[in-house]
Design a protein around this nucleic acid. Structure first.
Length: 425
RNA sequence: GGACAGGUGGCCGAGCGGUCAAUGGCAGCAGGCUGUAAACCUGCCGCUCCUUGCGAGCUACGGGGGUUCGAAUCCUCCCCUGUCCA
């Protein structure tokens, strides 16, 4: 991430502009203005809350949109509370899958929290971040306290919620437990005395419930800020691990580069907007230069990929990832960072078996199919520009001894590569 | 508690005694075209074996048992989901 912009001299108005930049909706901006003003006068930083599910510690670019916004609050000196929903996680957000999650052990949750921290602190400043767990208070509520909480909301209001009413009309199940989810989340805001809560646009209902419940408990309602949901690599559905259309922030640079290069040109601008620190006008400028023909979209996309990867791996690695990508796909040669394996033996094997055991195909049957499809080829030695030989006969045998004079053999199945040394000893 | 409807491959959704490893759509994978982009066209899309063939075997249609030469399809019990009534 770019270094924080300092704020000491920003007017409240400027702070507001900085904080609301990129947000889809803020309820209400006037309240945020008032809170910022007060914070400035009293020197009391705002308490900014965002909740995360304990079951998904693999952070991907979709999450970073929100985390980046948290960082903006930190830049202005406010307190960010990174709340891990170890209690609410047991309920499962109603907007999630309908699969019941097995309860997690405290050890698992603690381990996930650690993983979270490691990833999130690539963006957030650990010194300015409070990590908390909502089981700390929700787990201690007595049945009477629960009853008091539940009495503060009505069924009709819950059913206003779009996904509930939709599911209700469609005849899909809604458990009572799920109905409680928004209230539990709202109670977090009470327990934390949150001034601001951030969430995705899909969280609007839950966030609003927080405002209502806080007032019920005699607190000033939190300001809620909703960040847009990032589309996944397919450009249609939201980025999510279960849909497989994501880029994880811990993925190797090469991997990230490849994935980012596969997005459509249209989606590229969306990513520029939400995943870089460029201002909207800067992005518009780039867009213009492409439509004017002054810049090639391919180069623009490489630039985007490099920027994003730099945030998580550093600029040198990002540059290397780009070089490797160009080597492998544009020049069709073998990159430096190929996967390499050593052979367990040097006897001849059927290629189908070989590909399956080294993970280039998920099974021998699959390997045979890929061969018939013309997806499999091999190259000999370490030449800069290797000549690929396509192998399409499923009965073909790989005999390492035949190639020992070349030193190594590289196998390709579609976009997967594997280099193997064929020198015995 | 009562009356219905339904549970099929990653998802949606046909099939309703043999010709069903199961139509179709989506997703995915590969080839072509490109800027490995998108779009588009083509093929593939359970596993294993080999003599790679419109080959053989195995495992699959919520779970168990049964009827039949033969079941995803019929019977039975169980589990799960929805609708309506109380």
């Amino acid at each position: 991430m770019d270094g924080g912009r300092c704020c000491a001299n920003m007017t409240v108005k400027e702070q507001l502009a900085y904080l609301t930049k990129g947000a889809e909706e803020t309820i209400r901006a006037e309240d945020l203005y008032a809170k910022l003003e007060r914070a400035g006068k009293t020197g009391q930083p705002l308490r900014v809350k965002a909740g995360f599910d304990p079951t998904a510690p693999d952070i991907h670019l979709g999450h970073t949109v929100l985390i980046r916004k948290l960082k903006h609050f930190q830049d202005l000196g406010h307190t960010v509370i990174f709340l891990i929903g170890d209690f609410t996680g047991l309920i499962g957000d109603p907007s999630g899958r309908n699969v019941t999650r097995p309860p997690m052990t405290p050890e698992e949750i603690a381990a996930n929290a650690e993983t979270y921290k490691k990833q999130v602190f690539k963006i957030l400043d650990p010194k300015k971040t409070v990590v908390d767990f909502n089981n700390r208070w929700l787990g201690k509520l007595t049945s009477h306290e629960w009853m008091a909480l539940l009495s503060k909301y009505t069924v009709a209001r819950l059913l206003e919620r779009d996904d509930f009413s939709k599911r209700f009309k469609e005849g899909r199940p809604i458990t009572l437990l799920e109905l409680v989810y928004p209230l539990a989340m709202a109670y977090d805001s009470v327990a934390l005395k949150a001034d601001v809560e951030l969430g995705g646009t899909d969280q609007k209902f839950n966030l609003l419930a927080g405002r209502t419940i806080q007032q019920e408990y005699g607190q000033e309602p939190q300001v809620i800020m909703m960040m847009p949901i990032l589309e996944g690599l397919d450009g249609v559905q939201k980025m999510s691990k279960s849909l497989g259309n994501y880029v994880g922030i811990n993925e190797p640079p090469q991997e990230m580069f490849g994935k980012l290069m596969s997005i459509s040109d249209e989606l590229m601008w969306r990513y520029y907007e939400l995943l870089t620190d460029l201002s909207p006008s800067e992005v518009a400028g780039l867009k213009d230069s492409v439509s004017d023909g002054n810049a090639h979209p391919l180069e623009m996309k490489k630039d985007l990929a490099r920027r994003i990867i730099s945030d998580f791996h550093g600029a040198p690695e990002a540059g290397q990832a780009q070089k490797d990508w160009e080597t492998q796909f544009q020049k069709k040669s073998i990159p430096h960072e190929v996967r390499k394996e050593s052979l367990s033996h040097f006897l001849p094997v059927k290629l189908t078996t070989f590909l399956a055991t080294y993970g280039l195909a998920s099974s021998k049957t699959e390997a045979a199919r890929k061969m018939k499809e013309g997806a499999v080829s091999i190259a000999l030695g370490d030449a800069e520009t290797p000549s690929w030989e396509r192998i399409s006969d499923p009965a073909w045998e790989f005999d390492p001894a035949k190639y020992s004079c070349h030193g190594s053999v590289t196998f390709r199945v579609g976009r997967k590569l594997l280099k193997v040394s064929v020198k015995p000893g």
